[in-house]
Design a protein around this nucleic acid. Structure first.
Lengths: 220, 220
DNA sequence: GCTGTTACATTAACGCTGTTCACTTTACAC
DNA sequence: GTGTAAAGTGAACAGCGTTAATGTAACAGC
């Protein structure tokens, strides 16, 4: 009755083992460490056996990356649990979670958001899963609550995403320890993100600050 | 008298040819297209001969990347020629030049600012050459001219850099044609950069806009 | 002129990579 | 039992970065 189940079960197990081996190799040694032979060796199978489950290395990596995005989403979800809905704090927490994921899963992150050089095309679109939608909903809530100004939500999401993504990629390509020399002092990613928050929410316009502090606005 | 000159001249020429071949291969096919054998074939020399000039592939790529940053600097320098010193417009033009360089030299850019996966460490620090200093000076000028608010210049440079870098890397990893689906319409990098400029300079704070428009500031 | 040294190049080879091919083994259905 | 399909194997190919051994030419010093 279940022999076919057993069979496919066994195959599924092998596939799962391949994915897990791929994930681990990727996480610890980057894309070059994930070789078909290395994956096969971990699973206890020949490299060619992998081709029974994945068309090629690219397809395998694509699947592994999908798993990575799920882990990424978990970071984002966890970030908002204690932050009030509609608050700018919640947006900040999402940014911090993004940074934390990137630096706690460095090699993984490199591949997830790698410029597509060695990666398939599909997965590099903005992840449409719960991570992105959570981000988007937080922006919509913040607008409704008046925490941030009214604008096209998608545009703002992309704006914030761009910002934190740029910080992370810049720092990751900067130094392995994620620090950047900055006028004598060393700044790490969370510090920088916090400092940038002021710019992000208040902007660079001189009047904005002057008005906020002195109230000397010229009503036009 | 000059035989040694001729000799070293010949060597220099070979080295130059290697660098140019590396640059071209990198520009058109990315890091994987730049193989020692391919470079050697282009130069008309065996792959191993390259090792007389460069310690290994990494060293070669590092030198090629240095050339790339010079090209990059040229983009930035050209961007400011017509823009008045101290203007926010100048900062915007630098951002646009950054984006233009990235998309006109796509593969090159990928490697220049690649997350260091396959790259040597040194070169990935923020480029200290004329490009960065030009950027920094433009920020300082803009502060003195009152175009943007007063703050730590290095922090603002990094902030702006982060922003435009994030946009480019996100879009480059998004789709090969640098477009991103966005609530129905398709946006390209220059468009997005222009739209984000408002956020960058005015911020997301609702009061900033409200005050600027209504002048209903509460002096505290 | 001869010798030693150095720079520059070569070919062969090693171990690694992704992938294909031909083949075997296993498990199931009829 | 036979047939079929899935699952796994090892050999092999072409490419990769790199090393080793070797050859060649041009120079310096005696």
């Amino acid at each position: 009755m279940t022999p076919k189940l057993v069979d496919s079960r066994r195959a599924t197990d092998t596939e799962t083992a391949i994915l897990e081996a791929g994930r681990d190799l990727l996480a610890q040694g980057g894309i070059n460490a994930l070789s078909m032979r290395a994956v096969g060796a971990r699973v206890g199978v020949s490299a060619t056996a992998i081709y029974n489950y994945f068309e090629n290395k690219e397809a395998l990596v694509r699947r592994v990356v999908t798993l990575g995005f799920e882990r990424f989403d978990a970071y984002l979800r966890e970030a908002v649990v204690d932050r009030p809905e509609g608050s700018a704090e919640r947006l900040r927490a999402l940014g911090e979670a993004y940074v934390r994921f990137a630096f706690e899963n460095r090699e993984y992150f490199r591949v997830l958001f790698a410029m597509h050089a060695d990666l398939p095309r599909e997965i590099e679109e903005l992840p449409e899963g719960s991570g992105y939608s959570l981000f988007r909903q937080s922006v919509v809530d913040a607008m409704e609550a008046g925490s941030i100004r009214q604008a096209d939500p998608d545009l703002v999401v992309l704006y914030l995403w761009t910002h934190v993504h740029g910080l992370v990629t810049l720092l990751l390509s900067c130094k392995p320890d994620a620090r950047c020399g900055h006028s004598g002092e060393e700044l790490n990613a969370p510090d920088l993100l916090a400092r940038f928050s002021d710019f992000v929410f208040s902007g660079l316009q001189p009047q904005a600050v002057a008005r906020a502090e002195t109230g000397s606005a010229a009503a036009s």
